[in-house]
């Protein structure tokens, strides 16, 4: 990041971050000071984002593919599987979601494998805003967070006051984390400042009555951004706007998380921390179904961002069927027998 390297790093900010909700309670967008000139005007922001180095698409995909060939076996595999389970945002985002379905998913989040209590809990349950209160009640005292999508997920095609009201509702219902979608229409039309201001506005709407903030995850919908350059720009835009997490996709379009676009976002958070001292999390979502895939992503995290990100506070999987596959792999490791879908829940 040639342009970012001019900014003096502030390493203390990372060292002192608490394990969960790292910036909860602080005022929004602490990176603002360092990048105040960049976000001062539409023209400055465009100049900055378009000044980011172009992405070598072939090199990026080759790098992601190479890292995907690492062989993770035995104890390392057992560690990776448990880590991956603890990083899952167990998701149900269907029109047909019922309170009963959300409650049963919450029960699974707390005890993923009833036959083996050593299996770790998942990180969070991800639901639509109207289900957030139900999930909050079902998860009370368990330590599993409630994440709620908001801002007219998944398209985000509605007026800003509606999006902000959506967000406030979810926070009021007890959501610990808000997954917002950016306005891809504005982004693709080049109205970057509008996108930035919207993220900031949503971030302010994440404020709870006691002054703390719900964790904000910003979804880019990489499949709709078309190019790797756009994904890099969106990453920096969201980080400048004060996102706590950047998330690949909604899971509702054809192209979701891929190793390559996740690698790109991991590079962005690594460079952002180097430039500002602020650590941002990454969440790939959609299309990650097997334990093997999940482990490939963990290798990407370790090799790109570093071991600091190998924690549910900094890396999450947005997934639903992934958990069952991880549990079946866990059975395999503990019993030596291949397990089957009859031995995990149907959700």
């Amino acid at each position: 990041m040639s342009s970012a390297s001019t900014v003096p790093p502030e390493p203390t900010a990372t060292a002192s971050t608490p394990p969960t909700a790292p910036r909860a309670g602080q005022s929004p967008a602490p990176a603002d000071a360092a990048f105040a000139d960049v976000t001062a005007s539409e023209a400055a922001l465009r100049r900055y984002l378009h000044g980011l180095p172009g992405v070598d698409a072939v090199g990026l995909e080759a790098r992601a593919a190479t890292l995907g060939t690492r062989s993770i076996k035995t104890t390392a595999k057992a560690y990776a599987i448990d880590l991956a389970i603890s990083m899952i945002d167990l998701t149900t985002l269907e029109g047909a979601d019922t309170p009963g379905k959300v409650r049963s998913l919450c029960a699974k989040a707390i005890t993923p494998d009833p036959s083996d209590r050593t299996a770790p809990r998942v990180a969070a349950i991800c639901v639509y805003p109207d289900m957030a209160a139900i999930a909050k009640e079902a998860l009370a005292g368990s330590g599993v967070h409630v994440a709620s999508v908001a801002t007219a997920f998944p398209a985000g095609r509605t007026a800003r006051p509606v999006k902000l009201a959506d967000t406030r509702d979810a926070v009021a219902a007890g959501a610990d984390e808000i997954d917002m979608v950016i306005d891809r229409g504005a982004f693709l039309a080049g109205r970057y400042l509008e996108v930035l201001e919207e993220i900031r506005a949503v971030r302010e709407a994440c404020e709870r009555p006691d002054g703390s903030f719900a964790h904000l995850k910003v979804i880019f919908e990489n499949g709709e951004l078309s190019t790797y350059d756009n994904i890099r720009r969106a990453s920096w835009l969201a980080m400048l706007a004060g996102a706590d997490f950047i998330k690949t996709s909604t899971g509702k379009v054809a192209v979701n998380a891929t190793p390559a676009n996740t690698l790109l976002m991991l590079e962005a958070v690594r460079d952002f921390r180097a430039a500002t001292g602020v650590q941002i999390g990454v969440k790939p979502a959609g299309g990650i179904r097997t334990a093997k895939d999940a482990i490939k992503y963990l290798v990407l995290v370790n090799e790109t961002a570093g071991a600091d990100w190998l924690s549910p506070d900094w890396f999450r999987f947005g997934a639903s069927s992934l958990l069952n596959d991880l549990l079946m792999q866990r059975h395999k490791l503990s019993t030596g027998r291949y397990s089957g879908p009859d031995y995990v829940t149907v959700d």
Partner: peptide, 9 residues
């Protein structure tokens, strides 16, 4: 051996 032990067979 893996087929005989496989829980999904």
């Amino acid at each position: 051996t893996p087929l005989a032990a496989h829980q999904d067979v």
